[in-house]
Amino acid sequence: MAGVGVAAVSATALAVPAATTATLLAAAWIGSLLPDADRAGSRVYRRTRVERRVPLARLAGWLLRLPLRPLVLLRHRGITHSLVACAAVALATWALVGLADADLGVAAGAGMAIGYGAHVLADACTPAGVPLWAPLSSKPTWMLPAWARIKTGSAREFVVATALTGALVSATFLL
């Protein structure tokens, strides 16, 4: 939610064309799911409604997820929750999409960095923290002091997410 919201505010503030905005938002959405690819039941592995109804989309989704499957062998909130992983995924996205269209490659890379980074920073606000500097260090990093950390799935997380969503929607319409 945070990554897509920040991407939407950014696109609105920069007044980018519709195709660029769509690419930025789609990449931010996918990027926000990728850090949890190290967990077998995570949202990134679930079929979308379109995939459930359209056999060709089901096949495409399966093929696109195939390279992610080995990540489930990694420890959850390990290297996939680091700045190195965020940079690597953003650069790979920029390069791959840039082969088809250079301008959209930049938007896709930026969106991926925004979505992935927002997920990692949000997880750094939880009691577990994240190994932000992995593989250089596996020591957890937190963005909040111990008393303010938000447990995943708690009512407090819902309140913070609702407030953040409201702020991002307001900012998008005010720009």
Rank of each mutant, 00 (worst) to 15 (best):
A92L: 14
W147M: 14
P135R: 14
M143V: 05
G153Y: 12
A113H: 01
V54D: 11
L14H: 13
R52A: 08
V72P: 00
A18W: 08
P55G: 08
A90L: 08
P70A: 08
V169S: 12
V159A: 14
V159D: 03
R75A: 12
W62T: 12
M1E: 07
G117V: 08
T80G: 01
V84W: 09
A113P: 00
P67R: 06
L73A: 15
L74E: 11
A11C: 10
T126L: 06
V84A: 15
R69S: 10
V160E: 02
A88F: 02
D38Y: 06
K139L: 11
S10R: 04
G129H: 08
D123S: 10
P135L: 13
G109V: 03
P127W: 11
A88E: 06
R69W: 11
G117M: 10
A11T: 02
V130T: 05
W29A: 15
V160N: 02
G105A: 11
T172D: 02
D38E: 11
G117Y: 03
T48D: 05
R52T: 05
A8V: 01
T23S: 08
G166C: 06
L73W: 14
R43G: 09
L99W: 11
R52M: 13
R149H: 10
S138A: 15
A27K: 01
I30G: 01
W94L: 13
R47I: 03
A37V: 07
V169W: 07
R53G: 04
A124E: 05
E157R: 05
E51W: 01
A85Q: 02
L132F: 09
R47V: 01
P17D: 12
A13R: 14
G41Q: 15
A122R: 00
T152K: 10
A107C: 10
T21N: 01
A2S: 12
M1F: 06
T172M: 06
P131F: 03
V6H: 01
A57F: 09
D36T: 15
L136F: 15
L144M: 12
G166M: 01
G98C: 07
A167F: 12
L56W: 07
A118P: 04
P55D: 11
S138G: 14
G61E: 06
C125E: 04
S42Q: 12
P131R: 10
R65N: 12
P67G: 09
W94V: 00
A85M: 09
R49P: 01
P135D: 12
S154F: 04
T172P: 05
A60Q: 01
I79R: 03
G129K: 05
A163H: 05
M112R: 04
D123F: 10
V9I: 04
V97W: 02
R53C: 07
A92I: 05
G98D: 06
H81M: 08
A7Q: 00
P70Q: 02
F173A: 08
I30H: 03
R149N: 13
I114V: 15
F173N: 04
L175Q: 14
P55H: 12
L59Y: 02
L164V: 12
L144Q: 07
P70I: 05
A11N: 06
T141F: 13
A107N: 13
T141A: 14
V16G: 03
